[in-house]
Design a protein around this nucleic acid. Structure first.
Lengths: 216, 216
DNA sequence: GACAGAATCAAACAACTGTTTTAATCTGGT
DNA sequence: ACCAGATTAAAACAGTTGTTTGATTCTGTC
């Protein structure tokens, strides 16, 4: 079997499935809609992928690989500038050209609402490594070890702000209809906000290790 | 029609539907599973609510009302302490007793992945007002008007961190299996982190209004 | 106890689901 | 031109979906 990209209808099925799965999720998406959108027969999914779920796993895996960035270069910058670069990159990548989040974000939203078996693999293969590298960067900024509950919460806090603009978009756009979703502006804000937060955590940590430090 | 709470099977249907809708979402949930869990006949949903969607709207609306807090009293505290109280309350409320997020959070997760018509109403009735009151509090802390893009982003940043621990739980628990989800600890961290962020925003604002302020 | 209305039930409905089957068509090598 | 294998196509499969139907049971009132 030649699985290179030249297989026309296989590729069309993957593209169509990406759109439909992003909108409906695995369960509510139908192979008939996918095949119709791909201009293929109903049996095409079973012929080319065996299963509906195997098609989904392939789509989900590809979407997350696509969501990755070049990375690498920005770790040469000083830590705080590197963090700003990473944050801005993430915000930009999670936002599709038009209104709404990128399709790989919408698939992940369905996975968060109702995880499938494919989530384990994707977390381990692509999200895990990205989380780890961001964690070493944050641990360098706040001066705490990598394996530390506070470090973890700091990383999650940064990620939280970034993904919120993508995942919670349906609510945000309803609450503030005239919101400006410019990725650079959002990225800059999250960076300023988060770096100050990290510095405060670092300060509260150098002062006393165990006791909770009231912000002075 | 007497819609008070004494209607036994109607109440049981609402409870069962809450569980099933939280797990599967509107589309993937089946009225058969709901009725089975409620110990009722398959026709019970149509008899008591007319539609599957009317049952869902009722469940969704109730879940969000349940998610509200007493509020009121903590606005007497000085702004930053009030914010800490609100954050901790939100974190606590979004976490059910056991592993995983509260059921009203899981229903919202499905709505974010694929909004239904019910979302408009819920946002307008319960999320909107809560967002507004949090916004006035934040605007008082950072010294910016309520209707301001920076104020908005600050509020969203705080909310983002809170809801992330609930919505992204499937990913978080996979990335760090030995994570401690103690609501008070998380709430304290988010407060420290966010208040520092807000102060930085406030400082960068009083310095120069238009230009982006590099954190010193 | 009889009776009207509410409530529950089993059964069936048509529509839709993923998948399989079987035949038809296309493709490239000889 | 021919043919084996890959690919497509139409049709049918069994199972599930939300909803409806019509009969049966329950409930409170006279």
């Amino acid at each position: 079997m030649n699985h290179s990209e030249q297989d026309a209808t296989r590729t069309r099925l993957l593209e169509a499935a990406g759109i439909v799965f992003a909108e409906k999720g695995f369960n509510s998406a139908t192979v008939r809609e996918i095949c119709l959108r791909a201009g293929a027969n109903v049996a095409a999914v079973n012929y080319h992928f065996g299963d509906k779920i195997e098609l989904y796993v392939e789509v989900f895996r590809r979407s997350m690989v696509l969501a990755q960035e070049a990375e690498a270069e920005q770790f040469l910058l000083p830590p705080e500038q590197a963090l700003t670069a990473i944050i801005t990159g993430m915000v930009r990548r999670m936002q599709s050209s038009e209104e709404g989040a990128a399709w790989h974000v919408r698939i992940m939203a369905h996975e968060l609402a109702q995880p499938t078996a494919a989530l384990d693999r994707v977390v381990q293969e692509v999200i895990g490594p990205r989380y780890a590298s961001l964690r070493t960067l944050v641990s360098r900024i706040i001066g705490l070890p990598v394996e530390n509950e506070t470090t973890r919460m700091c990383v999650l806090g940064v990620i939280a702000q970034v993904v919120h603009y993508a995942h919670a978009r349906p609510v945000i756009s309803r609450i503030c209809p005239d919101m400006d979703f410019d990725p650079d502006r959002i990225g800059r804000h999250i960076s300023t906000f988060s770096i100050a937060g990290l510095r405060a955590i670092a300060a509260s940590n150098t002062a006393t290790q165990t006791e909770h430090q009231e912000v002075p």
